[in-house]
């Protein structure tokens, strides 16, 4: 391969990482499912979620209706939180609650600056910080079941000059998501700009990994007597899932499994949910 063509390929890749995953998967406006949801959230109807990891005797988990943030929490929104709660600023957060990389994309305690966009998803936040933010806005982090349930919805294609709007589901959706997971990190686009799904939730895929309330509940053996190490090794990772071909979901569970609550990671952010009490 010539040097030039290699450089071109790299350029293509960088462009792909920067721009929304599929040009055609930009959100259709406005989302149709907002219903009675608070601003910035959409309604997710209740139903049943079939857990990815099979447990004897549990075929499905009931999901109560809930509201979910349309997009991940942004740097700007998180700055508002830190300003109002300076104990969560970079220099004051205790080591037990966030690693040293906490908010390292920011210029300083109360200045985003640097390479981070104000409207890009906030990353390098620990679970403790995400949890505190959610409480501050009177919301909470989604459970794994809620997150995965919302993520099951097909993705929407917006109409473009060359094609009509529609949805992507099944194999095509899986391939699209897997292709994103397979790429190294790129610069983060503004939150809420890619991969809107049928509920109107955006960038569950294509931007960042997201914290869940019970991220540390991925325990494969159901016997409390067993050494309940969360495990993604050859045997444990590939046995007892509802679909061993769903590599994208494997990856999300592996990622959650690799985390501790104080961790801060460059491509890990979060969004909130709220109870639908009606």
């Amino acid at each position: 391969m010539s040097h030039a063509s290699f450089a071109r390929s790299v350029a293509v890749l960088l462009a792909a990482a920067w721009f929304p995953l599929y040009a055609g998967a930009q959100p259709a406006h406005p989302p149709v499912h907002t219903g009675r949801a608070p601003a910035g959230m959409v309604s997710i109807p209740g139903g049943y979620y079939r857990p990815f990891y099979i447990t004897k005797g549990i075929d499905s988990v009931k999901i109560e209706p809930f509201f979910m943030d349309v997009r991940a929490v942004t740097n700007k929104e998180f700055l508002n939180f830190v300003t109002a709660n300076p104990q969560w600023s970079r220099s004051r957060v205790p080591a037990s609650l966030a690693e040293r990389g906490y908010l390292r994309q920011w210029k300083s305690d109360f200045v985003i600056g640097g390479v981070a966009l104000e409207n890009a998803p906030v990353v390098n936040v620990s679970w403790f910080a995400a949890h505190a933010y959610a409480a501050w806005v009177h919301k909470r982090l989604p459970t794994i079941a809620e997150w995965e349930y919302a993520a099951l919805a097909p993705l929407r294609w917006a109409a473009t000059p060359s094609r009509r709007s529609g949805t992507i589901d099944g194999e095509a959706k899986r391939e699209l998501i897997l292709a994103w997971y397979a790429r190294p990190n790129g610069p983060l686009a503004p939150a809420g700009t890619v991969n809107e799904n049928a509920y109107g939730v955006r960038d569950l895929f294509g931007e960042v990994w997201e914290w869940t309330q019970d991220f540390n509940s991925v325990i494969i053996p159901a016997d409390p007597r067993g050494e309940a190490n969360p495990s993604s090794t050859c045997g444990a990772g590939a046995i007892g899932t509802i679909d061993p071909g769903d590599y994208a979901t494997f990856m999300r569970f592996a990622m959650r499994n690799s985390l501790l609550a104080a961790y801060t990671v460059d491509n890990l952010g979060f969004r909130c949910v709220a109870e639908d009490r009606n």
Partner: peptide
């Protein structure tokens, strides 16, 4: 339960509640 989860995360104890009300947990 939210406070229990906070303790579990401070101690880094993985656990899961099942619909039966029982828990799987690290020992």
């Amino acid at each position: 339960s939210d406070d229990v989860r906070m303790i579990a995360n401070l101690l880094n104890v993985d656990y899961k509640e099942w619909p039966s009300g029982d828990f799987t947990h690290q020992n």
